[in-house]
Amino acid sequence: MNGKIDSVSSFVPLQGIPEQHLSFLLNKAHSRFLFKGSSLKSQNLGLESYIYLFSGEVIVRTFEGEERVRATENLLPIAYQQYHAVEITAVMDSELLIFPAQELKQQLCWSQMAEFQRVQIAGDPTRDEDAEWINFILDSNLFFKVPPTNVSEIFSKLTPRVVSSGDVIVRQGDVGNACYFIKEGRAKVEVADVDADMKKVVAEIGPGRCFGEDALVNKTQRNATVSMIENGVLMRLSKDDFLPLLKRDQATTVDLDYLLAKLGQDEECIIIDVRTVPEYQFGHLETAVNIALDILPLHLPRLNNRFEYILYSDCGFRSNAGAVALSKLGYNAVSLEGGLSEIYTGCSVNPKLKQLLTISPYWVRGGYVVSDQPVGATKYR
């Protein structure tokens, strides 16, 4: 499946996931081949799975009608933002790439929150020397277990340890209670062969590598001995500090009625769409500005901590993470419960909800929302 990584990296919203994280997500996906004339039906597309047309051509039928889709012309998921029954029929032999929706949304959110941290670090000159090893940590599969809302807390739990050549850091057979990241220096990994009464060096590891991570989630014995072959610095994460990171922070949420009461009535209430640019361009809430989750730190100077910010995403996952992050930075930020999926699913029952959606862009200038007009900028009221 990883052989497809170059092709799928342009899919929406997968283009928001760095390659190393996309590779992890691809392991959760599977292919489905449709021969000419055969069909696939889904009752909850977008809620259960995201389906991309990897090759071929299909006809997609929804309650709104039918559409012919060609792989070479479409980067969006099939029947994007259609949360109802969908039938996909192959016009020619075609390959579908199917991702579990929850896995995709979680990975996208985690990846964008990791980028959020990178952007913050890049803007802080006092942390220049930490940037390289922090990037290694953010790319570690270990922290995929940590909810995206807690990404910023990871670094406060790491403690430095200065080590010397010859120091034994973990010993095979011991029960571990911490893992280590190598910030500086090199180490060797040895495995004892009890029958031969000897040790074998199986690897040498350097900056950015992590070892002993099994101790954080399991009560197991160390399966190798790790000792330093150079002087260096390690960053230690204890099990007691790691386990609280697994608890998800929840932002304050508001419902659609609350949003409608604010929409166009309160110029100090700003609606922020934290999805990627292509998702925003497909359709978004009226007056909503697009500030993708991963670049939120770049836009902080434009925000006013006296204003209210309502964040939303496709299902509320990314907007919850963004609202938590902004709240920790002192902003009045909440998340729209259910996200856009609540509005799209309701369109079949209440067509007036479509009036809330637009493709016209909006921006934040001088702290307020402005519309993109041909002549000048008009403040939205």
Rank of each mutant, 00 (worst) to 15 (best):
F307L: 08
P147F: 04
A215P: 04
S156K: 12
V254T: 11
V170S: 00
S348T: 12
A292P: 06
G283A: 07
K36G: 10
G264F: 10
L357C: 09
E19C: 04
N304S: 08
A101F: 03
N218L: 15
R302Y: 11
A101E: 06
E66V: 07
G65A: 11
V277R: 09
D314Y: 02
D214R: 11
L142T: 02
V175T: 14
S227T: 14
E67D: 15
Y312G: 03
L245C: 08
K328C: 08
C269Y: 03
K239G: 05
A192H: 14
D273T: 03
G346P: 01
E115Q: 09
A288W: 01
R318K: 15
F143V: 01
V349W: 10
N150S: 13
L97S: 00
A321Y: 03
N141L: 08
F116G: 05
R306F: 01
A85R: 07
A114G: 09
V69W: 05
V151L: 13
T62K: 01
G173C: 12
L22D: 00
L216W: 06
R68D: 07
T253Q: 13
K354C: 10
G206M: 09
P351C: 14
I271N: 02
V86I: 11
V175W: 10
F317I: 09
V168G: 06
V233N: 02
A377C: 12
N332C: 07
V202C: 10
K157F: 09
K145A: 15
A122G: 09
Y258H: 15
Q221T: 13
Q355R: 14
Q373R: 15
C269H: 04
L296W: 02
E19F: 00
F242H: 04
L97R: 00
S38I: 11
K41R: 14
K219Q: 15
D372M: 07
E279D: 11
T72G: 09
E87T: 13
A85F: 13
L356H: 04
M198R: 15
Q117S: 15
E230T: 11
L53F: 06
P301W: 06
Y331E: 05
G366T: 02
S10G: 11
S319R: 01
K199A: 09
F116A: 02
N135F: 05
M228E: 07
Y80M: 00
L158F: 10
Y180V: 06
T149K: 02
G65K: 12
T287V: 05
S313C: 06
R186N: 12
C109K: 00
I98T: 08
V12W: 01
I291R: 03
W363L: 13
I359V: 14
I98V: 15
D6S: 13
Y83K: 02
W363E: 13
S335D: 06
L25C: 02
A122L: 10
R236M: 15
T358W: 02
E268Q: 13
I343V: 15
F136T: 02
N135Q: 12
S152D: 04
S313G: 09
C347W: 01
P361A: 07
D174A: 11
Q15H: 12
D255S: 10
A122W: 06
S238G: 13
L26I: 08
L260Y: 07
N350F: 14
L14D: 03
L259N: 05
V189K: 06
L285D: 03
S31V: 13
S156V: 08
L26A: 05
G123V: 11
A196V: 09
V226A: 04
R127P: 04
Q250I: 02
